[in-house]
Design a protein around this nucleic acid. Structure first.
Lengths: 125, 125
DNA sequence: CTTATAGTGAGAATTAATTATCATCTCGTC
DNA sequence: GACGAGATGATAATTAATTCTCACTATAAG
């Protein structure tokens, strides 16, 4: 019976503590001091999705981000400066009303864009 | 055999008549009988965006789609079966209320997913 | 200790989208 | 007809993200 490796534990903890979904490279950078390789990061993220523990968040024009699967329904905010992705709680709703006649709605994504607190405060990026 | 400059006209007309943004490959396929090459399609789309006549629509996990720049504010619906993208008029609104404190909201995208009329009617999931 | 097994990192390979290259073609102008 | 600027298409090249390969390692079991 294989026991979970330290890397797997670290990645799960990292995703749980993050304020939003992380990309593979963000995970690698955050765990850089452990010497984790990018191949291992991708392996663990892929397995986590297959096991239903992580959810992949597809960002237009950017790498896939990952978050724990047990978060309640929410959406995301992408900072146009630092490109970090943040969770935003809540949902505008009323989306069936937008759906055209005869179309069946299965899911939806709302992606806000702008500048996060950190990047709004900084005068020059 | 179309005169060279006809390609630009054909692409613009195609985008204007479409029910949603089109990808480069969808443009090429729609104009296949003219023998248009993919390089020309990308060239015309790129120039259109640079000139402000077209808007690029980034689809997560898919190629960029393009639509005329003069459409009123709206969002999109992606069919999970045929992967075509359709315009949906209207907007849920109230998005500033979702934006976290200190964040500045500049734009937003809403992407609905499900099955379009055509693919809902066809008894093949 | 010895072995079996899963885990690992470096780097190669793959994939899909897009862009660059370049010889050729078109058309208005001479 | 010849000319030249711009347009074109086939294909090579590039780019970014992700996956694969493989020799090596640590651990646990026997």
């Amino acid at each position: 019976m294989p026991r979970p490796s330290d890397h797997a534990v670290a990645v799960t903890r990292l995703l749980e503590e993050a304020q939003g979904p992380l990309s593979a490279d963000e995970v690698r950078q955050a765990l850089a001091e452990t010497g984790i390789g990018i191949a291992t990061v991708y392996r663990l993220l892929k397995r986590g999705v297959e096991d239903g523990r992580y959810i992949p968040i597809e960002i237009p024009n950017g790498p896939t981000h990952y978050e724990p699967a047990d978060r309640p329904h929410h959406h995301h905010f992408e900072c146009l400066t630092c490109h970090r992705v943040y969770d935003v709680m809540g949902c505008p709703g009323h989306l069936d009303e937008l759906t055209p006649e005869g179309f069946s709605l299965e899911s939806h994504d709302v992606l806000l864009r702008g500048h996060c607190v950190t990047c709004s405060e900084t005068p020059t990026p």
